[in-house]
């Protein structure tokens, strides 16, 4: 696998750009897909947001200065894209964010790309009750198994704050799952 720096250089040079872009997509598609999917839940919406994320990365790669790692920069773009996608969606349908979360969970039950059982559906309901930041941290830590340091670079917050958010999230989800 290419080093990150080499990949960025190739992406920034016109001759190697298209080839490097294919490598970039292949390297990060799965990780970014699951990151976005956990925020927007629906597969088609995820596909939309993921494609836009890669296009944005491609168009803005010249502005990437290497202050952060390429992958945390891409994660940040993906997170912003997914969150603003939801914002636009709730504005378009004229409903509050919490109502949107409810309808997303309802849609999940009839979604052909969701094969979860009762407990897994309940897990999604539990996650939906969390505030935005706790939700992001929980998904990134519990399912994606990212390190606190990595999450802190992506979300640009302190490690201490993240740890607190994560533990709160786990507590809330556990007690939600234990309820009948």
């Amino acid at each position: 696998m290419l080093g990150e720096e080499t990949l960025v250089n190739q992406l920034q040079s016109k001759d190697t750009q298209s080839q490097a872009f294919e490598v970039l997509v292949d390297t990060y598609k799965q990780r970014l897909y699951w990151h976005i999917r956990r925020i927007v839940l629906d597969h088609d919406d995820t596909d939309d947001v993921l494609q836009n994320t890669f296009i944005k990365v491609y168009k803005n790669i010249d502005g990437f200065k290497g202050d952060s790692k390429l992958y945390s920069w891409m994660y940040r773009i993906a997170t912003n894209e997914a969150l603003s996608f939801l914002k636009v969606k709730s504005k378009k349908s004229g409903i509050e964010n919490s109502e949107l979360q409810d309808s997303m969970i309802n849609n999940l039950q009839s979604d052909v790309y969701f094969e979860g059982d009762e407990i897994q559906l309940k897990l999604q309901k539990a996650i939906a009750t969390l505030p935005e930041k706790q939700k992001l941290v929980f998904n990134m830590k519990y399912f994606q198994e990212l390190k606190y340091e990595e999450i802190s670079k992506i979300l640009e917050t302190s490690v201490g704050g993240l740890k607190a958010s994560y533990h709160l999230a786990v507590k809330k989800i556990e007690s939600f799952l234990k309820e009948d």
Binding site: V25, R37, E115, G116, Q120, L123, F143, L177
Partner: peptide, 26 residues
């Protein structure tokens, strides 16, 4: 933990294989 590690999300077949092509088309 009582929290399941599997979420139940699935992806359409060959989705990831055709992703690069779809992005170029877009």
């Amino acid at each position: 933990s009582v929290i399941p590690k599997e979420e139940g999300f699935v992806v359409p077949e060959n989705y990831f294989e055709s992703l690069h092509e779809n992005i170029l088309k877009k």
